[in-house]
Every structure is written in structure tokens, then in C-alpha cells.
């Protein structure tokens, strides 16, 4: 399963194999070096005191770029791997200052809060906005700098059993970089929040390197999976089985979307996947909240789910109860 030595302790550099990802959808992955030492990663947020992302006091790093296109995605700025403009359209007062500052000029009018087609994320309009309603989401970090930023609070992490979580986007899309950061963290608990959509070799490394893996299980039916997430389910299913058979502590997370996966069979599939897994921490049930689309406008996208947003998602916790599977509902 893993091509790293089983004798190698966690927290030490594993040799990253060169993988052809195969799911890059034409995305230009950031420059990566063999051991992550000089790699640059694109990060769209760093959040301290992320209380829902693992044990203790921890900081979550949001890595930019994701191969999936889940219809309910609530972090649209995490989709593109490149830095991009974000505008707080809700707060914008339509003063037009940003438009005047933009080198694209008035040739590409978009009206409203000036999110022109062909925006190069040059950032010239950002200082022009008095309210601070514009920002460039996505900052390049070297592994050294990011690790230093995170290690600054290592004492706090250690004192509380906390640490660092990599989320996204899909953090494994920049695995070489993430791995390089992990190698530089000063003995703190580490976790990842992933869709599981990666190669088996990368996933094996993830299981070896991280103290906790939080993986989504989105849609059980393979056909529906492709329809609602845009990608093949097969690798994700393989990785769920790897988790269940392995000894890396893991949490399976179920976003519950009304009319998409709020069915008993879905819960039964999950129960079947994790039953007897000795390293399962719990299953997280995350019922859909209507605010999922809040940020689409800010990145100039339209939120157009094919399911009924207003319907109350159903969940079937009795399935887990019966099997003695610990679970937690995030309302």
C-alpha cells in the first residue's frame, strides 16, 4: 500500500513519489520540488482556533484548488488553484472606485461590484476600496514560512492536544507542499480534511504521516456520485477501505444533502464501510445548511444546486446506533 518504509516514524520526511495525478482538469499545479523543500503552496486562509477541525486548540490551513465540483460546495474560492479576486458584494456600496483603479479599464463592464471577466487577480483594485471589501484569495507560501507561522503556536497546540489541520479546497492536490510543511512542524498533532480523491500512493503517505484523517463520504451510488461531485467514486471507496483497515485514526464525514443522499441506504453503506474499523474515531453527520451558497457571488460564480435547498435533510442515526458506531451531528 505504501512505498515508504514501515519503520519510518511519523513526522519524518517520506520520499514523495512522482505521481501523475490524472485528475487535474487542466489546472496548473503549483511548482513542486521532490521533497517539498522549495515548493510553494497556494493557501486561501489560515484560521486560528478552528474548533471543529480536530482535537484541542488548532489552526486550519485552507489549501487552494479542488478537483471536485460538489454542487453544495460552500468554499467556492477553494475550487480554482490560482489566486483570485473576492468581493464582499453584500457590503459593497457601489462607489466605483475599484473600477477606476482596474487596469482592464471599462472595456469589460460588469456593473455592480466590478468583477470583470479576464480579471488577472493583480490586486490593483484592492486598496481602492475604502471599506476593504475586496481581497485576493490565495497567497503563495513556502513550506518554511508556513511551518514557521504554524510553529509559532506549537506550545499552545501541545498544551491542549491540538495542532494543525490542512483543509481546502482539496489539500492533497498540493500534497508535496503539504508534506513539506508537515516535515517541518514541531511535534504537534496533525490532521487533514480531504475528499479522498487522490492516488493510492499519496493516500498511503497521508495515512502514514498524519495523526488524524477526516475524509468525506459524499454519495454512495457511483453514478450519482459523478453527477453531484463531478468525479469518479472508485478511488474514494478504495481509500475509505484503506482507512478502515489501517491504524490511522480517522473520521468519516457525511454532508447530508436533501434529496441527494439523505437516504437510509447511504447511512447503511457508511456503516458497512466503517464497521469494525478499530481506528475509527467517529462518523460526523453534517446536515446541509442553506448558507452554503453565501460566497459564490463573491467569486463571481452562481450557486445553482439541482437539489431542493429548502428541504430539511433527513438522517438515520439509528443505523449507526445499531452497529455501535460513534457519531456526531453538526447542526
Amino acid at each position: 500500500m505504501s512505498n515508504a518504509s514501515p519503520l519510518q516514524p511519523k513526522g519524518q520526511a517520506a520520499t514523495a513519489p512522482h505521481e501523475s495525478c490524472g485528475f487535474q482538469r487542466g489546472l496548473a499545479a503549483p511548482a513542486q520540488a521532490r521533497n517539498g523543500a522549495t515548493a510553494v503552496g497556494i493557501v486561501f486562509d489560515i484560521k486560528e482556533f478552528a474548533v471543529f477541525d480536530g482535537p484541542g486548540i488548532r489552526t486550519t490551513v485552507f489549501m487552494k484548488g479542488c478537483p471536485l465540483r460538489c454542487q453544495w460546495c460552500h468554499n467556492p474560492e477553494g475550487l480554482s488553484p490560482k489566486p483570485q479576486l473576492m468581493v464582499s458584494t453584500a457590503a459593497c456600496v457601489h462607489c466605483g472606485a475599484c473600477e477606476r483603479a482596474c487596469p482592464l479599464g471599462a472595456e469589460v463592464p460588469t456593473g455592480g461590484c466590478w468583477q470583470p471577466k479576464g480579471c488577472t487577480a493583480c490586486g490593483a483594485c484592492v486598496p481602492a476600496c475604502r471599506g476593504g471589501f475586496r481581497k485576493i484569495a490565495g497567497t503563495a507560501w513556502t513550506a518554511e514560512d508556513l511551518a514557521a507561522r504554524l510553529n509559532k503556536d506549537a506550545d499552545v497546540f501541545r498544551a491542549t492536544g491540538g495542532g494543525v489541520t490542512f483543509s481546502g479546497g482539496e489539500p492533497l492536490l498540493q500534497w508535496d507542499f503539504v508534506s513539506g510543511v508537515l516535515d517541518r512542524l514541531a511535534g504537534v498533532h496533525t490532521a487533514v480534511e480531504t475528499s479522498g480523491f487522490t492516488t493510492d500512493a499519496v493516500f498511503a503517505q497521508v495515512m502514514e504521516k498524519l495523526d488524524l484523517v477526516m475524509m468525506d463520504w459524499k454519495v454512495s451510488d457511483p453514478e450519482a456520485h459523478r453527477r453531484y461531485t463531478g468525479v469518479d467514486q472508485a478511488p474514494i471507496r478504495r481509500h475509505a477501505r484503506m482507512l478502515a483497515a489501517g491504524d490511522t485514526p480517522f473520521i468519516l464525514r457525511m454532508p447530508i444533502i436533501p434529496g441527494v443522499n439523505d437516504e437510509r441506504e447511504h447511512f447503511e453503506t457508511v456503516a458497512e464501510l466503517v464497521k469494525g474499523a478499530k481506528s475509527l474515531v467517529r462518523v460526523d453527520v453534517l446536515p446541509y445548511q442553506r448558507a452554503a451558497g453565501a460566497k459564490y457571488d463573491m467569486v463571481g460564480r452562481t450557486y445553482a444546486p439541482e437539489f431542493d435547498e429548502a428541504a430539511a435533510p433527513k438522517y438515520f442515526l439509528d443505523v449507526f446506533e445499531r452497529e455501535g458506531i460513534p457519531c456526531q451531528v453538526f447542526r
Partner: peptide, 29 residues
């Protein structure tokens, strides 16, 4: 909104700056 730039609310699986959310979502929260 100018006085609440650092007001963080949890929306769904994520937390965000309240003033950056669209009105309908603010209302929802």
C-alpha cells in the same frame, strides 16, 4: 458592517466574516 469586520460566524462547515456574507445568508444566520 464597517464596525464588525472581525465578527466571525459559523455558517456551515466553515466560519466566515459576517459582513462578507450576502444579505440573505446573513438573515439566515
Amino acid at each position: 458592517p464597517e464596525n464588525y469586520r472581525n465578527l466571525i460566524v459559523r455558517v456551515w462547515g466553515w466560519s466566515g466574516y459576517f459582513v462578507e456574507l450576502d444579505k440573505c445568508y446573513q438573515d439566515h444566520i
